[in-house]
Structure formats: structure tokens, C-alpha cells
Write a protein that binds this DNA or RNA. Structure first.
Lengths: 227, 227
DNA sequence: GTCGTCCTTGACACAACCCTGACGCGTCCG
DNA sequence: CGGACGCGTCAGGGTTGTGTCAAGGACGAC
């Protein structure tokens, strides 16, 4: 199911969008200002963002930059401004499309479909994304971890952390990147979270948690997942 | 260099686009009808396509479908038609963006940049920047050094120093530059740091640390990394 | 309300890392 | 010949980073 984040301070526009999107089986979150929007984006990881540039608390371009700091989620900008400069600024800040108000709902939905479609990874749905080690198996598609024939129970945060590490198998992932991807863009420095959750992953998945072979610490730099 | 394929049957529009794009260092091919366009696309593999829907020989949507049969290249549609149905049809056929004539050149270029930007890193993230010598291998993306099949552990400072040297393979890097890049702009003179860390790199990577073959001292000037 | 799960937070011991100073060696030049 | 200088090497000690544990709070299920 595709998750959409709608950001607009005009309730009637939000309402219209929500109704139309829900009717088409999208899952919809809504925010009425930039700060809430950034928080929601971090918490919910939408598949596409619809953003009105005229927000009460901050410039819409700042919202774009805030999102682009950590995610490549498609951003579809709505705006009452027709000026070319505004469009260029928003697009160059990282927006994917720019629609001026008043807009036709059909067109907006078509642009939304286009944005979602091209964000889909090339081989989506075809590969079952299995990662195996000698100790356990991670199924990224099914969101399951198997160890000795038994499924391992992971909390949402544990899974999220594992996912980021596994998607970068062999590569070093910096603490900042892990924190921002799992906890959100404003958590770049809370390294204690990482320590706690890395320990939990090791306890659940490593044969000898105090001598990890798969979840490797690179002191001062980050962590690395090795098969 | 980014390659653009422009498809339009109006010569003055093609001319305007070609001039503007070439001025911005794009490489441009042009076609005046759909059949030529499909041929050119296959032969030249453009990074982005600008397509006018009103072509003499075939419907623009057919061109989109023809392209989408084998490529995910971004397609930016130009059209004189403002109707919502046309837009939806083109977008759902696989277009990435839809701009109505008359259009502002600035806006078109911004939309083009957005389309190219979002298509780019798909391939860029996959290739590892590997640097090999006969003794060891440096993977800049994964932050990994391999020697005799084993991963070598580097501290953050060691890695940072190695990175600067490797990114300047074969070139002499002055002590001042190394110090400032690794330790910060105010550390231009603490050459003893360099001596210590260069020795550690050699001990970990050189076959015979006291006779270095890759980390070469240029007395009084700086250091040089050689494959 | 009570229970259970999950996330956050703080404290502490231990390990890893960085800086520092001392010394030896070779080269250059007075 | 001898001192100055630049470089390589080594090992101690202070600082920073990491692993671990346990307690408290938020939240939803029952």
C-alpha cells in the first residue's frame, strides 16, 4: 500500500486530497505546518509527499531541504504562485514536480502516480531479497528473520536498524546515517540509542553476542554488517 | 555529460531548446517525428527525453509507449493541449512530467534538472570506488581495506589520512594539506602527527614498513601514494 | 485498572583511540 | 667535524567511545 504525506495549511484542500486518495487505496497522513510535516515524514516514511509551499511556520523550500537531507522520497509541490522563479527554486531544492493551484484532481493524481512509479526500484517485486549468513537468514521482503528454523521476534526499531545495515551489507554505515534513517533527521547525535539497539540485535542474532561476527563496530566511525 | 533527446516538429522550438541546452553543456540530439525519435533513442541512449505530443507521423503517447518498452529514461512531455485528460493519458503511459506551451525556458530547464537528478544515482550508488595495489585493496565506498584476503582495521584518523592520499593517487600532497584535511584547518604545522600516523599506515599496509613502496616520503614537502 | 511490550535514559566499567615526549638515524651545510 | 634539521619509531597516559545493565515512562490490549 502506498503511503502519502499531505502537507497543507488549508483544511479544505487537505480534506479533498485525503478523500480522493483514500478512495484510491492510498494510506494518507496529513500535516498543517512544516515542523509537524518533518516529524511525520521521519516517523512514517511516506512513499510520496504532497507539499504546499505556503505554510504558516516555515518556508516550503526549507521543508524540501529538510527532507532531502536524509531521504529521496518523491516530493510533489503545490503552490498558488505561478512565478517561474518559485518553481525553479523549489525544483532545484529537490522537488520532483510542481503543480499550480487551482489544480485538477485527475492531473494531480496522475502526477502522483508518475512520481511513485519512477521511484520504484528496478527489480521491485521480483527478487525476494534474502540475505543469509551461517547463523541466520534475513528476508527483507517478508520482514522476517529466521534462526535455527525459528522466527526471531524483532521490535519495530530493531528491525528498522537491521534493515538499514543489511541493505548496506559489507559497507560501513556511519552512526549519523543510522540514527537519521532509523530515528529521524534530528537524531544525528544520540549514539546511546545505537549502542542499546545494536546490543539487542547481537543478543538476538549473534552466536556469541560479546564477540560479534556479523554486526561489527568500527570505533569512532559506525557499524558494518557482514555475512 | 548529460545527453538530451529533443523531439518536436516545430523548428523554432527545437532551435530554442538546442541553443539553451548546449549553452548549459548538455549534449543534444533532435528529431522532428516519432519514428526518427525512436531510432535516435535506441542509437544514442539519451539521459533524458523532451517530447512534444503533436508529431506529424504518430501520436505522442505511442512514442512514450515505444520508449517505455525498453527503457526507463525520464520523459518530459511538451504539449499545446491543456486538457486534463491528455495530461493523465501521457503521464500514465509513462511520462515523467508534462509542461504546457507556451512554457518558460527557466522552468523547463529546472524540470529537466529535476528529472535527470532523480534518475542519476540509481546507477551511481552501485559501483564501488576500488583502488588496488599488489599488496592491498582500498574500497572507498565501503570504507574497507583488504590485505591478503583479510580486512584491515583502521582507526578513524588512519582511514581519513589514507582516504586523502588515495584520492590523490600519484600526486604529491603537502604536509600542510594533509594536516588541514585530516585534523582541521588550524593544524597546519603539527607534522609530528603525520609522522606517527604515516608510520601506522605503513605498518598495517606495507609489506616492508621500513622500506615503503606505496606511502612515499618527499622530504620537506609531503607524501605521495603510489599504486 | 493491570499487564506486557517497547522505547528512552542514566550510570558505570572497559576498550579503543589520540596525543605527547623521548630517542635514534640519516642528510645537509656551516 | 659537528650541529641543525627532518623523519621514523616506540610506549605511556589522558581522553573519548563503546558495551552492558537496569529502571522508568509511554502506549495499547485486555
Amino acid at each position: 500500500m502506498t503511503r502519502v504525506l499531505v502537507i497543507d495549511d488549508e483544511p479544505q484542500i487537505v480534506r479533498a486530497l485525503v478523500i480522493n486518495l483514500r478512495a484510491r487505496k492510498y494510506e494518507v497522513d496529513a500535516a498543517y505546518d512544516g515542523a509537524t510535516a518533518l516529524q511525520l515524514a521521519a516517523a512514517r516514511h511516506p512513499d510520496v509527499v504532497v507539499l504546499d509551499l505556503g505554510l504558516p511556520d516555515m518556508d516550503g523550500v526549507e521543508v524540501i531541504k529538510g527532507l532531502r537531507g536524509w531521504t529521496r522520497v518523491p516530493i510533489l509541490v503545490l503552490s498558488a504562485r505561478h512565478s517561474s522563479d518559485e518553481k525553479v527554486e523549489a525544483l532545484d531544492a529537490g522537488a520532483d514536480d510542481y503543480v499550480t493551484k487551482p489544480f485538477g484532481m485527475d492531473e494531480l493524481l496522475a502526477r502522483l502516480r508518475a512520481a511513485v512509479r519512477r521511484a520504484e526500484p528496478v527489480g521491485a517485486g521480483e527478487d525476494d531479497a534474502l540475505v543469509e549468513t551461517e547463523g541466520f537468514t534475513v528476508d527483507l521482503a517478508a520482514k522476517k528473520v529466521n534462526r535455527d528454523g525459528r522466527d526471531v521476534r524483532l521490535t519495530p526499531t530493531e528491525w528498522h536498524l537491521l534493515e538499514v545495515l543489511v541493505r548496506n551489507t559489507g559497507r560501513l554505515v556511519s552512526q549519523k546515517q543510522l540514527l537519521q534513517e532509523v530515528w529521524g533527521p534530528s537524531y544525528g547525535t544520540e549514539t546511546n540509542y545505537l549502542r542499546v539497539y545494536m546490543a539487542q540485535l547481537r543478543r538476538k542474532l549473534e552466536a556469541d553476542p560479546s564477540h560479534p561476527r556479523h554486526f561489527i563496530t568500527e570505533a569512532g566511525m559506525g557499524y558494518r554488517f557482514e555475512k
